[in-house]
Design a protein around this nucleic acid. Structure first.
Ligand SMILES: [Mn+2]
Ligand SMILES: [Mn+2]
Ligand SMILES: [Zn+2]
Ligand SMILES: [Zn+2]
Lengths: 128, 128
DNA sequence: TAGGAAATGCAACTGAATTGCATTAGTTTT
DNA sequence: AAAACTAATGCAATTCAGTTGCATTTCCTA
């Protein structure tokens, strides 16, 4: 089997994501890590972290991909990130609402594998 | 006020979308209309149709944008397309499930403007 | 049917993401 | 601790979706 290694860049990016209260895009991360590693490496590290189940992708309403840690993955190994994301149009942040799960009634014969649920609007910080 | 014109390309693209059972990407449309008009024109027509409320955008799970007619817009002028989309990983189609509306309980102080809800998995056509 | 504005075509450009390949650096084995 | 194996990285080139500027055409209406 092929193994995965712990490199300084990977650890730094993982820590960055874990300590962030909002989801981060590739560009956010690049700005943050500076010259620690090449931008291509950031893409590859993000892919690896997704692969390993450490983080998950969020496709924002403007098409930009953001990343956030998987908080429930340890407790629910085979879950499908079926929580709500909120994208604020004012401060341009994306937040995982880990314990907001939508309910819906699908017609029969649809087999759901993944859920991507993003609401956009004004977040509590920007509402006042 | 600035007016909008009915051109052959616009009518053709609108008809194409209305007659399709699945959402179409820019590339799908380009393949379909052939040399009827330039690819830039397709982008501009799609923008215009969105602007006019004739069609709506769907950001697929792979980041590709697809377009589908707004079926409820006439009856509910100010609705926010809060229906579910299903993206099949096998046949790579995106379908509007116009009458599947999710419910969810947001914490207070979030003001929702738009909903983007896409499920991915296996569609009824591909399940057997 | 003539004038003005909207729409189009074309070429160039942008920005995100991917690929190939040579080099570097973690990890395991001796 | 050194060698060996291979995952990970850097760099340059490439792909792909979408945008922009500008000259030209087409639609609409007065
Ligand atoms: Mn999340
Ligand atoms: Mn739809
Ligand atoms: Zn905000
Ligand atoms: Zn299918």
């Amino acid at each position: 089997m092929k193994s995965t290694r712990n490199t300084t860049a990977k650890s730094a990016i993982q820590l960055l994501l874990q300590q962030s209260s909002v989801a981060l895009s590739h560009k956010d991360i690049q700005n943050e890590v500076g010259k620690l590693c090449n931008r291509v490496t950031i893409y590859r590290i993000l892919d690896r972290l997704v692969e390993e189940g450490e983080i998950h992708k969020i496709i924002n309403t403007d098409g930009v991909i953001k990343y956030a840690p998987c908080n429930q993955c340890e407790s629910h190994p085979n879950h499908n990130h079926d929580h709500v994301h909120f994208s604020c149009v004012k401060c341009d942040t994306v937040t995982c609402l880990d314990n907001v799960q939508p309910s819906y009634n699908l017609p029969p014969d649809y087999k759901v594998q993944e859920v991507n649920f993003t609401l956009s609007g004004i977040c509590p910080n920007c509402i006042k």
